Simulated assay, not measured.
Amino acid sequence: MSSSPQLRRRAEAAASKLPPLLARAEHLANTVLLGDHGRRRAGAGDDFWQYRPLQEGDSFRMIDWRRSAKSDAQYVRQREWQIAQSVSLWIDGSASMSYASDTSLAPKSDRAQVLALALSILLIRAGERVGLAGAELPPRRGDGQIWRLCEALLAPGDADYGTPEARAMIPRSRALFISDFMGDFAPVEQALAKAADRGVRGVLLQVLDPAEEAFPFQGRAIFESMGATLEHETRKANDLRDRYLERLADRKAALHRVAKATGWQAFTHLTNAPVQQALLWLYRAMEGGR
């Protein structure tokens, strides 16, 4: 087939980026102090964690009678949570994410990939399972999964704008969606509704180029989508600024609204901002979703 050489070149180009991406993600992950990773919580493990007073709704079978005999109160013996949590990732690989307004800035896709992989490294090395939303790469542990995630994150998409993936999510697990969220908003709402129905909590991370945030364009300009499916020409780009910024503010408000309604969190990160800052926020936000 005539497309085979082209597909091979794309695959080789993606493969050539894999070690640098992994090295950058490893370095970034090492900037975050793992500590105990917040994993000490009551659950179905075997290790003793703490005693707590008997509460309404507790079964009498939960009472530790030996500890309770030492006082007038009745106590429950709690064990440390040892069942690893599962985290599903959806990282927008659409053409829109390849935008960078300046050669000194990385494309949005690059920032999304390194953040997703660095967070995955932190979670997997803390004993958790991480995979991709959908059936392509289910959550698993181990360094081998980090390599598989790295390879999958570099696979290019075909669409102009990304559509969130919410299939095959494990009930009561966590999720991370990273995108510019510049496309149709209905699929975002639908994906979060599906996730909420399964008890999945998570984070929406909007990654934007600083030019998309500030709209610095003036005079004659041609705006074209990265996939070249949309085009708009104007003689006075500065006249569009107020309308554009208003629509961007509306989109951010919509992200926060749907996140709040479904128990998620939303955050916007610019590609000229420190990447460590974004990872630390993600790390804490994912912990808060337990």
Rank of each mutant, 00 (worst) to 15 (best):
2 S>N: 04
3 S>N: 10
5 P>S: 08
11 A>G: 01
14 A>R: 02
18 L>A: 10
26 E>K: 00
27 H>I: 01
27 H>N: 02
31 T>Y: 01
31 T>H: 10
33 L>C: 01
36 D>R: 10
40 R>W: 04
50 Q>L: 11
52 R>D: 03
59 S>K: 05
69 A>S: 15
79 R>M: 04
88 S>A: 11
94 S>I: 11
106 A>L: 12
106 A>T: 04
108 K>Q: 15
113 Q>L: 00
115 L>Q: 04
126 A>I: 06
130 V>Q: 14
131 G>L: 15
133 A>V: 11
137 L>I: 08
138 P>N: 06
141 R>W: 00
143 D>F: 13
147 W>E: 10
148 R>W: 02
156 P>G: 03
159 A>N: 06
161 Y>N: 11
166 A>H: 08
169 M>N: 07
175 A>Y: 02
185 F>I: 11
188 V>K: 09
188 V>I: 10
192 L>I: 06
193 A>W: 03
195 A>S: 13
199 G>K: 13
206 Q>V: 03
208 L>V: 14
212 E>A: 06
216 P>M: 05
223 F>C: 01
227 G>L: 12
228 A>E: 08
240 L>F: 07
249 A>K: 07
255 L>Q: 00
263 G>M: 09
267 F>P: 00
268 T>S: 12
270 L>K: 05
275 V>H: 10
276 Q>D: 11
282 L>G: 14
283 Y>E: 08
285 A>Y: 04
287 E>M: 09
290 R>P: 05
